[in-house]
Design a protein around this nucleic acid. Structure first.
Length: 486
RNA sequence: CGGGGCGUAGCGCAGCCUGGUAGCGCACCUGCCUUGGGCGCAGGGGGUCGCCGGUUCGAAUCCGGCCGCCCCGACCA
């Protein structure tokens, strides 16, 4: 841990203010909210139960939608023979520097090294070649939940770790059009989950060639804007064309009796999404979780007074049962070893959307006090109205977080036509800058070198760039969303 | 992998310059008292000072190497 400036008298429970050092604030939240911890393995984190619970809720939200769109889950091996990875030239070139190898097993050196999967196109492609014979075998729509390993030079909890958890969908289709449709369908699923579940607005679009997945025909992404104005790639969906089919010999006999290669897609999101949620919604008091992915949506804090264990506690327990019975994820913090004030701060740190306070005064008046995490608003609610109000408030908070994040993104997005404006926009308040682009990798690279901003993606669909390329002045082929990225 | 910073109790730090048997706050334990925004008082436990080596009568402190973490770049979900 690096030294924090001047806080010899600071409480350990405090976290670095976001405005002072966003990066340190992020790490403080991860640690204090007990989302993850460093492990003895360099670059690898332990996802702690609270952090894992968030991931599980994200998983469920995704998995539901994968199944609703016709996909099934399966599992492929962690190890991939090195030779398989090498079959697709661009693929191996793209991933080779990040790959971990197993060289020994059972006390002996292996004849062929095994790659610890950085992604599974190679092993899955190999299996698809065995499974596909006829157009009747298509499409194959498989997803797997797995861990992958990429030897990153710089790591940060959730955002970039050597090993991370993700899902990877791998599909094979009869036609190019079907593959493209699938690629965009899953991009849409990602956008829906990001916005509807994580309350994290994202910009869908197509990646430029320089940021395209190694071996893909086209890569699409969703990009989110974090609280410090930097962009986070939150998910990718690739149209693999026939590249992997040709590399792994995935052929089928078509309706016209000809032999054809399948058209492939792959798509993934990872535990990085948890980092995105932290950096989209959190504040100086810690995490703020959208209700739909909050492990606890309501925390009940009984106010101890006198013989509260006989008076207040039974009421609190009854409330817990009632809410839980209605499908609310609720936690009763009945510990007598902490004061209410301590619990308030603690559950705010952990981002619980709603706090329910109940004490002798409330019982007398037949009410409870609800406190919103996002606005800190205190609301007295008659007991009879509680379930309805809780439900409504959770919905309100979910919406308010999305709206707030959307407003933040709008305030931090500018549209420019000249390079001077571009530089000014990037130097001032960071965020997205939309500008016309000629399509050349040279301009893209120069802009990156000069401003650190990269093209996050290009908007989908037909669009008319509002002028010539912001960098070189040649005719523009597209508008591009630029940002400094994580 | 380049530039910079930092490793001393669970967390945050002081001590290091000028070598002499390791300290503070929080957390933790015990008791009493409190509890509607991180209660108070009293007593207490806990550290081979990141690791390895060197210098020295003696090393947290000086020297060398290694490892780890953080920040800024280049590479990436």
């Amino acid at each position: 841990m690096a030294k924090k400036p001047d806080q010899s008298d600071a409480l350990v429970t405090e976290i670095t203010p976001r405005s002072q050092d966003f990066s340190r604030w992020y790490l403080d939240v991860v640690r204090r909210a007990e989302l993850a911890d460093y492990s003895p393995v360099k670059g690898c984190m332990v996802i702690r139960p609270y952090g894992y619970a968030i991931w599980e809720l994200i998983q469920q939200a995704l998995d539901r939608r994968f199944k609703a769109t016709g996909h099934v889950n399966a599992y492929f091996p962690l190890f991939i023979p090195e030779g398989l990875l090498k079959k697709e030239a661009d693929h191996v070139e793209g991933f080779a520097p990040q790959v971990a190898y197993v060289t020994h097993g059972g006390g002996e050196e292996l004849e062929e090294r095994l790659v610890v999967r950085p992604t599974s196109e190679a092993i899955i492609g190999t299996m698809y070649a065995k499974w596909v014979r006829s157009w009747r075998d298509l499409p194959i729509l498989i997803n797997q939940w797995a861990n992958v390993v990429r030897w990153e030079k710089v790591t940060r909890p959730f955002l970039r770790t050597t090993e991370f958890l993700w899902q990877e969908g791998h599909t094979a289709h009869e036609t190019e059009a079907e593959a493209e449709e699938e690629t965009l369908r899953m991009l849409g699923v990602y956008q829906e989950v990001a916005e509807h579940e994580l309350a994290m607005p994202v910009v869908p679009g197509r990646k430029t060639d320089s940021e395209r997945f190694a071996g893909a025909l086209r890569t699409y992404s969703i990009e989110a804007l974090m609280g410090d104005g930097r962009a986070l790639q939150a998910g990718t969906s690739h149209n693999l064309g026939q590249n992997f089919a040709k590399a792994f010999d995935i052929q089928f006999q078509a309706r016209d009796k000809s032999l054809q290669y399948v058209w492939g897609t792959s798509w993934g999101v990872s535990t990085r999404l948890v980092g995105g949620v932290i950096m989209t919604h959190g504040d100086d008091s810690g995490l703020i979780l959208p209700p739909r992915i909050a492990p606890y949506q309501v925390v009940i804090v009984p106010i101890p007074r006198g013989n509260w264990q006989e008076t207040v506690l039974p009421r609190a327990q009854a409330l817990r049962e009632d809410l839980a019975g209605r499908g609310v994820r609720v936690m009763l913090d009945a510990r007598d070893t902490y004061t209410p004030g301590w619990k308030f701060a603690e559950w705010e740190m952990r981002g619980v959307p709603l706090r329910l306070e109940i004490g002798p005064r409330d019982i007398e008046q037949g009410q409870v006090v609800l406190v919103r995490r996002d606005t800190r608003e205190k609301i007295s609610v008659p007991l009879a109205d509680l379930p309805v109000r809780v439900d409504a408030l959770l919905g309100d908070i979910q919406r308010a977080l999305l709206e707030r994040a959307l407003r933040f993104r709008e305030e931090h997005t500018s549209r420019v036509t000249t390079y001077d404006e571009f530089i000014q926009a990037m130097e001032g308040r960071p965020g997205f800058v939309i500008a016309p682009w000629c399509g050349s990798a040279e301009c893209e690279a120069q802009i990156k070198a000069e401003t650190q901003a990269t093209i996050r993606n290009l908007p989908l669909g037909d669009q008319r760039p509002g002028g010539p390329c912001v960098k070189c002045g040649r005719p523009a082929v597209s508008e591009a969303w630029f940002a400094k990225a994580y």
